[in-house]
Amino acid sequence: MSVEVSTSRPPAEPVLYGLLAEFDDPAALARAAAAVRQKGYTRWDAHSPFPVHGLDEAMGARRTRLPLIALIAGLCGLIGGLKLAWYTNASDLAFMPSFLRGYPFMISGKPVFSLPANIPVVFETTVLLAALGTVLGMLGLNRLPRLHHPLFASERFARATTDRFFIVIEARDPRFDRRAAAEFLRSLGAAAVEEVAEGPP
Protein backbone atom coordinates (compact mmCIF):
# COMPACT_ATOMS: atom_id res chain seq x y z
CA MET A 1 0.00 0.00 0.00
CA SER A 2 1.34 3.42 -0.92
CA VAL A 3 2.26 5.85 1.80
CA GLU A 4 0.13 8.93 1.57
CA VAL A 5 -1.11 11.86 3.57
CA SER A 6 -4.57 13.06 2.75
CA THR A 7 -4.69 16.79 3.22
CA SER A 8 -8.01 17.66 1.60
CA ARG A 9 -9.78 19.85 4.12
CA PRO A 10 -13.04 21.74 3.95
CA PRO A 11 -12.58 25.50 3.81
CA ALA A 12 -13.77 26.11 7.38
CA GLU A 13 -10.55 24.52 8.72
CA PRO A 14 -11.98 22.16 11.36
CA VAL A 15 -10.25 21.63 14.66
CA LEU A 16 -7.75 18.79 14.39
CA TYR A 17 -8.44 15.78 16.62
CA GLY A 18 -5.24 13.95 15.82
CA LEU A 19 -3.22 11.91 13.39
CA LEU A 20 -4.29 8.41 12.49
CA ALA A 21 -1.63 5.97 11.31
CA GLU A 22 -2.54 2.58 9.85
CA PHE A 23 -0.43 -0.57 10.26
CA ASP A 24 -0.66 -3.94 8.58
CA ASP A 25 -0.21 -6.38 11.42
CA PRO A 26 -0.07 -6.62 15.20
CA ALA A 27 3.73 -6.91 15.32
CA ALA A 28 4.16 -3.65 13.40
CA LEU A 29 1.65 -2.02 15.73
CA ALA A 30 3.53 -3.12 18.84
CA ARG A 31 6.86 -1.94 17.41
CA ALA A 32 5.40 1.42 16.46
CA ALA A 33 3.71 1.79 19.86
CA ALA A 34 7.05 1.27 21.61
CA ALA A 35 8.62 3.94 19.40
CA VAL A 36 5.80 6.44 19.99
CA ARG A 37 6.16 5.97 23.70
CA GLN A 38 9.96 6.34 23.42
CA LYS A 39 9.46 9.63 21.61
CA GLY A 40 7.68 11.01 24.66
CA TYR A 41 4.10 11.35 23.45
CA THR A 42 1.52 11.04 26.21
CA ARG A 43 -1.86 11.64 24.51
CA TRP A 44 -2.06 8.72 22.14
CA ASP A 45 -3.69 5.34 21.80
CA ALA A 46 -3.59 2.18 19.71
CA HIS A 47 -6.64 0.55 18.14
CA SER A 48 -6.90 -3.07 17.07
CA PRO A 49 -9.61 -5.61 16.20
CA PHE A 50 -8.51 -7.81 19.10
CA PRO A 51 -6.24 -7.42 22.14
CA VAL A 52 -2.65 -7.59 20.88
CA HIS A 53 -0.09 -9.48 22.94
CA GLY A 54 2.75 -7.33 24.16
CA LEU A 55 1.04 -4.06 23.31
CA ASP A 56 0.45 -3.14 26.94
CA GLU A 57 4.14 -3.56 27.72
CA ALA A 58 5.09 -1.59 24.60
CA MET A 59 2.74 1.22 25.62
CA GLY A 60 3.89 1.16 29.23
CA ALA A 61 0.32 0.75 30.42
CA ARG A 62 -0.44 0.65 34.10
CA ARG A 63 -2.57 -2.09 35.60
CA THR A 64 -6.26 -1.38 35.65
CA ARG A 65 -8.12 -0.72 38.88
CA LEU A 66 -10.98 -2.94 37.76
CA PRO A 67 -10.21 -5.87 40.13
CA LEU A 68 -10.39 -3.48 43.07
CA ILE A 69 -13.79 -2.22 41.92
CA ALA A 70 -15.01 -5.81 41.56
CA LEU A 71 -13.71 -6.65 45.04
CA ILE A 72 -15.44 -3.68 46.64
CA ALA A 73 -18.70 -4.40 44.82
CA GLY A 74 -18.48 -8.06 45.83
CA LEU A 75 -17.91 -7.14 49.48
CA CYS A 76 -20.93 -4.85 49.32
CA GLY A 77 -22.94 -7.81 48.02
CA LEU A 78 -21.60 -10.03 50.79
CA ILE A 79 -22.35 -7.60 53.60
CA GLY A 80 -25.62 -6.47 52.01
CA GLY A 81 -26.81 -10.07 51.58
CA LEU A 82 -25.95 -10.96 55.17
CA LYS A 83 -27.63 -7.83 56.48
CA LEU A 84 -30.72 -8.46 54.38
CA ALA A 85 -31.16 -12.03 55.60
CA TRP A 86 -30.47 -11.11 59.21
CA TYR A 87 -32.59 -7.97 59.19
CA THR A 88 -35.69 -9.48 57.61
CA ASN A 89 -35.65 -12.91 59.30
CA ALA A 90 -33.87 -12.43 62.62
CA SER A 91 -34.10 -8.81 63.80
CA ASP A 92 -36.97 -7.02 65.48
CA LEU A 93 -36.33 -3.31 65.67
CA ALA A 94 -39.27 -1.70 67.46
CA PHE A 95 -38.55 1.80 66.20
CA MET A 96 -38.91 0.87 62.52
CA PRO A 97 -42.22 1.48 60.74
CA SER A 98 -44.14 -1.75 60.25
CA PHE A 99 -43.57 -2.06 56.50
CA LEU A 100 -39.80 -1.84 57.04
CA ARG A 101 -39.58 -3.94 60.18
CA GLY A 102 -38.09 -7.41 60.21
CA TYR A 103 -39.22 -10.08 62.61
CA PRO A 104 -37.80 -13.39 63.89
CA PHE A 105 -38.88 -16.28 61.67
CA MET A 106 -39.46 -19.30 63.87
CA ILE A 107 -39.22 -22.34 61.62
CA SER A 108 -39.02 -25.88 63.01
CA GLY A 109 -37.43 -24.53 66.17
CA LYS A 110 -34.21 -23.68 64.35
CA PRO A 111 -32.09 -20.66 65.35
CA VAL A 112 -33.44 -17.49 63.76
CA PHE A 113 -30.04 -16.68 62.32
CA SER A 114 -27.44 -19.26 61.41
CA LEU A 115 -24.69 -18.73 58.86
CA PRO A 116 -24.88 -22.04 56.94
CA ALA A 117 -28.57 -21.64 56.12
CA ASN A 118 -27.92 -18.15 54.78
CA ILE A 119 -24.81 -18.93 52.74
CA PRO A 120 -26.58 -19.66 49.42
CA VAL A 121 -28.33 -16.30 49.20
CA VAL A 122 -25.30 -14.39 50.47
CA PHE A 123 -23.12 -16.15 47.90
CA GLU A 124 -25.48 -15.18 45.08
CA THR A 125 -25.67 -11.52 46.11
CA THR A 126 -21.87 -11.42 46.35
CA VAL A 127 -21.44 -12.79 42.84
CA LEU A 128 -24.19 -10.60 41.42
CA LEU A 129 -22.81 -7.36 42.78
CA ALA A 130 -19.23 -8.26 41.89
CA ALA A 131 -20.32 -8.98 38.31
CA LEU A 132 -22.34 -5.79 38.09
CA GLY A 133 -19.37 -3.86 39.50
CA THR A 134 -17.07 -5.47 36.95
CA VAL A 135 -19.25 -4.63 33.95
CA LEU A 136 -20.24 -1.13 35.03
CA GLY A 137 -16.67 -0.48 36.21
CA MET A 138 -15.25 -1.57 32.86
CA LEU A 139 -17.68 0.66 30.97
CA GLY A 140 -17.15 3.56 33.36
CA LEU A 141 -13.36 3.44 33.24
CA ASN A 142 -13.55 3.17 29.44
CA ARG A 143 -15.93 6.15 29.29
CA LEU A 144 -18.46 4.03 27.46
CA PRO A 145 -21.08 4.13 26.15
CA ARG A 146 -20.45 7.10 23.90
CA LEU A 147 -22.51 7.84 20.86
CA HIS A 148 -19.81 9.38 18.74
CA HIS A 149 -16.06 9.45 18.37
CA PRO A 150 -14.05 11.67 16.01
CA LEU A 151 -12.34 8.56 14.61
CA PHE A 152 -15.66 7.25 13.28
CA ALA A 153 -15.45 9.96 10.61
CA SER A 154 -12.49 8.18 9.02
CA GLU A 155 -13.36 5.67 6.29
CA ARG A 156 -10.12 3.89 6.96
CA PHE A 157 -10.82 3.46 10.65
CA ALA A 158 -13.87 1.30 9.92
CA ARG A 159 -11.45 -1.59 9.47
CA ALA A 160 -10.11 -1.20 13.01
CA THR A 161 -12.72 -3.74 14.06
CA THR A 162 -11.89 -6.13 11.23
CA ASP A 163 -8.25 -6.53 10.29
CA ARG A 164 -6.28 -3.27 10.46
CA PHE A 165 -4.21 -1.76 13.28
CA PHE A 166 -4.01 1.93 14.14
CA ILE A 167 -2.14 4.44 16.27
CA VAL A 168 -3.67 7.83 17.01
CA ILE A 169 -1.64 10.73 18.33
CA GLU A 170 -4.02 13.36 19.61
CA ALA A 171 -3.58 17.04 18.76
CA ARG A 172 -3.78 17.99 22.45
CA ASP A 173 -0.56 16.11 23.19
CA PRO A 174 1.94 18.72 24.44
CA ARG A 175 4.61 17.44 22.03
CA PHE A 176 2.22 17.33 19.06
CA ASP A 177 3.31 18.98 15.86
CA ARG A 178 1.25 18.25 12.78
CA ARG A 179 4.13 17.87 10.32
CA ALA A 180 6.68 16.29 12.62
CA ALA A 181 4.21 13.78 13.97
CA ALA A 182 3.10 12.75 10.49
CA GLU A 183 6.71 12.38 9.42
CA PHE A 184 7.47 10.34 12.51
CA LEU A 185 4.50 8.00 12.04
CA ARG A 186 5.48 7.40 8.42
CA SER A 187 9.02 6.59 9.50
CA LEU A 188 7.60 3.84 11.73
CA GLY A 189 6.30 2.00 8.69
CA ALA A 190 2.70 3.20 8.71
CA ALA A 191 0.83 2.11 5.61
CA ALA A 192 -1.09 5.38 5.67
CA VAL A 193 -1.28 8.52 7.80
CA GLU A 194 -4.42 10.60 7.93
CA GLU A 195 -5.54 13.76 9.71
CA VAL A 196 -8.76 13.37 11.66
CA ALA A 197 -10.93 16.35 12.50
CA GLU A 198 -12.70 16.89 15.78
CA GLY A 199 -16.34 16.11 15.06
CA PRO A 200 -19.22 18.56 15.42
CA PRO A 201 -19.65 19.42 19.11
Partner: peptide, 21 residues
Protein backbone atom coordinates in the same frame (compact mmCIF):
# COMPACT_ATOMS: atom_id res chain seq x y z
CA UNK B 1 -21.74 -1.55 20.39
CA UNK B 2 -21.66 1.35 22.89
CA UNK B 3 -19.12 3.32 20.84
CA UNK B 4 -16.43 0.64 20.93
CA UNK B 5 -13.26 1.70 19.09
CA UNK B 6 -10.90 -1.17 19.90
CA UNK B 7 -8.64 1.15 21.87
CA UNK B 8 -5.74 -0.57 23.62
CA UNK B 9 -6.76 0.98 26.93
CA UNK B 10 -10.28 -0.33 26.42
CA UNK B 11 -9.07 -3.79 25.47
CA UNK B 12 -6.97 -3.94 28.61
CA UNK B 13 -9.97 -3.29 30.86
CA UNK B 14 -12.18 -5.45 28.65
CA UNK B 15 -9.87 -8.43 29.03
CA UNK B 16 -9.65 -7.85 32.76
CA UNK B 17 -13.44 -7.64 33.01
CA UNK B 18 -13.81 -10.81 30.96
CA UNK B 19 -11.41 -12.69 33.20
CA UNK B 20 -13.19 -11.44 36.31
CA UNK B 21 -16.58 -12.44 34.92
Amino acid sequence: ALGWTGSAAHWRRFECAYLLL
